[in-house]
């Protein structure tokens, strides 16, 4: 499975990924339509200044574009009382039909990557983007002008990760 990865040394906090993400997850998937009709559009990742006060990160500082880390096992999946939050392959996915908005996942996520909107709102790894729009696999990666956002294969990551410490 691929993961999204942000290199903080390259991120310039331009917010292009947030815009692309919001548009990708709007109903029209079209930025002009989003701007002109005011249809609902909200990003599933957020640019954050490293060590900076939690408002708009300053251009030129060290920043990161952060979203769901698709952990395994995932604290949000453990916490979900409805089975809405689940794993699909390596991805952590929220079935919004099943989500009841209890925000157990928001409380459980150590990366602050789930927003409590009507249902849990988080990175869904742009399902079917290629098929639907013929464009690149991930909207945020495509939009990133400095190539700070990239995909990384899971081979860089220890398999069978556990949320535990130490050995017996």
């Amino acid at each position: 499975m691929e993961r999204l990865y942000c290199d903080g040394r390259l991120c310039v906090a331009c917010h292009a990924c947030e815009v692309a993400c919001a548009v990708e997850h709007s109903s029209s998937r079209n930025i002009l339509s989003v701007i002109s009709t005011g249809e609902f559009a909200f990003p599933r990742r957020l640019v954050q200044g490293v060590g900076e006060s939690p408002y708009r990160p300053r251009v030129g500082g060290v920043a990161l574009s952060l979203g769901c880390q698709h952990c395994s096992p995932a604290a949000c999946v453990d916490a979900c009382i409805s089975g809405a939050m689940h794993k699909e392959g390596g991805a952590t996915v929220c079935d919004t039909e099943q989500c009841v908005g209890c925000w157990m996942c928001v409380m459980a996520c150590p990366f602050d990557a789930i927003t409590p909107l009507k249902t849990a709102w988080k990175c869904d790894l742009c399902p079917n983007r290629v098929e639907l729009s013929g464009r690149a696999r991930y909207a945020c990666v495509e939009a990133c002008p400095t190539e700070a956002l990239r995909t990384a294969g899971c081979e860089s990551v220890t398999d069978n990760r556990q949320p535990v410490t130490g050995n017996r």
């Binding site: 942000c6 040394r9 060290v62």
Partner: peptide, 15 residues
């Protein structure tokens, strides 16, 4: 923090 995800984040900003 022994989670891979946290270690990756820390590495990626070189803090």
């Amino acid at each position: 923090f022994d989670e891979v995800e946290f270690q990756e984040l820390m590495d990626s900003v070189g803090v």
